[in-house]
Design a protein around this nucleic acid. Structure first.
Length: 107
DNA sequence: CTGTTGACGCCGG
DNA sequence: GCCGGCGCCAACA
């Protein structure tokens, strides 16, 4: 039951994500806000099915964590793009994006 | 129109 | 600072 690939909502979301410059990130909630909606979940759904064509790793959760099942997959991208990261005290705890610095707002 | 499903967000404990 | 619960929005059966 995925969202309509030809829907404006999907097109807008993918467009916004694609407009995020390297080294910057946006939360699902921010992307949804730009669309005038608070459907942060919907944005996640779109990313899950159609995010393959956009830099999905630049879209993170409000807490600064990458998608729950993709943190390891996104890390190399962040390192390559120079995205501000905050390594956890313990290596096992993983890492999180320095949202305060890497935050990006489309103009 | 109602129910179900999420790569989510915020608040309270 | 971590964990759990409730709320939101869009699309499909």
């Amino acid at each position: 039951m995925r969202l309509a690939p030809d829907s404006d909502f999907v097109t807008n979301v993918l467009g916004i994500v694609d407009s995020i410059p390297a080294g910057r990130v946006m939360t699902y909630g921010d992307v949804a806000a730009v669309l005038g909606s608070r459907g942060a979940r919907v944005v996640g759904q779109i990313m899950a099915h159609y995010g393959a064509d956009v830099p999905w790793w630049r879209v993170i959760r409000a807490g600064g964590h990458p998608p729950v099942a993709h943190e390891a997959r996104a890390l190399p991208h962040y390192r390559a793009e120079g995205t501000p990261l905050v390594l956890a005290s313990t290596a096992a705890a993983g890492y999180r994006v320095d949202y305060a610095v890497a935050r990006w707002s489309p103009s």
